[in-house]
Amino acid sequence: MDKNLEPIVKNIQEKFGAALEEFREEAHLFLKPEQIVDALTLLRDESNFELLSALTATDYWPQTAPRFHVIYQLTSLEKNLSLQIRVPVNGDSPKVPTVTGIYASANWRERELLDMFGIEVEGHPDPRRILMPEDHEGHPLRKDYPLGYEEPQFSFNYDEIDLRKPYAKE
C-alpha cells in the first residue's frame, strides 16, 4: 500500500470499523451499506478523492450471505491515490443507498447496477433501466442468468438449423 494512503485507510478503519484487504498494493476496505454515504463524503471532502472512477458489483452466487459486493473505486487526482471500497449485500432484496449526492457520475452507474444486477438503489433520482430494453426480464450480469448461447450454424448442421431459424419476412 502507498505510504500516503495508510493514514487515510487507518482513519476510515477507526471511524467505521472497516476490514482491510490488500492485494498487489491495492487496498480494499469493507463497509456496511448504511456507512457508505458518510464514508464517501468524508473521503471526498477530507482526503481529496474527487473522482469516482468506477461503481459496479460482483455476484458470488450460489453464496447468498453476502451474495454481492458493491464496489466503489475512488481516485484522488491531487494525491495520486486509489482506494477501493466494497459493500457486501445479501441476496434477498439487495439494497444500497444512493451516492449521487456525493458524486454525480454515480447516477448512471447506479442505474446500471439496478439494470444488470437488480440491486435496488434507495433514493435514486431516476431509477430506470439503462442498457437493456424497458420490458426486459431478469438481470443479465447475475450469475444465475443464462449467457444465452445459441448453436452456431456450420455446414454439417446447416439444414437442421435453417429449418428452425426465425428468418424475417419481407
Partner: peptide, 13 residues
C-alpha cells in the same frame, strides 16, 4: 453468442 445480440440480422430483416 449471448443474450444481448441477435444471432444474425436475418432474424430482423
Amino acid at each position: 453468442n449471448n443474450y444481448a445480440i441477435y444471432q444474425g440480422v436475418d432474424e430482423v430483416v
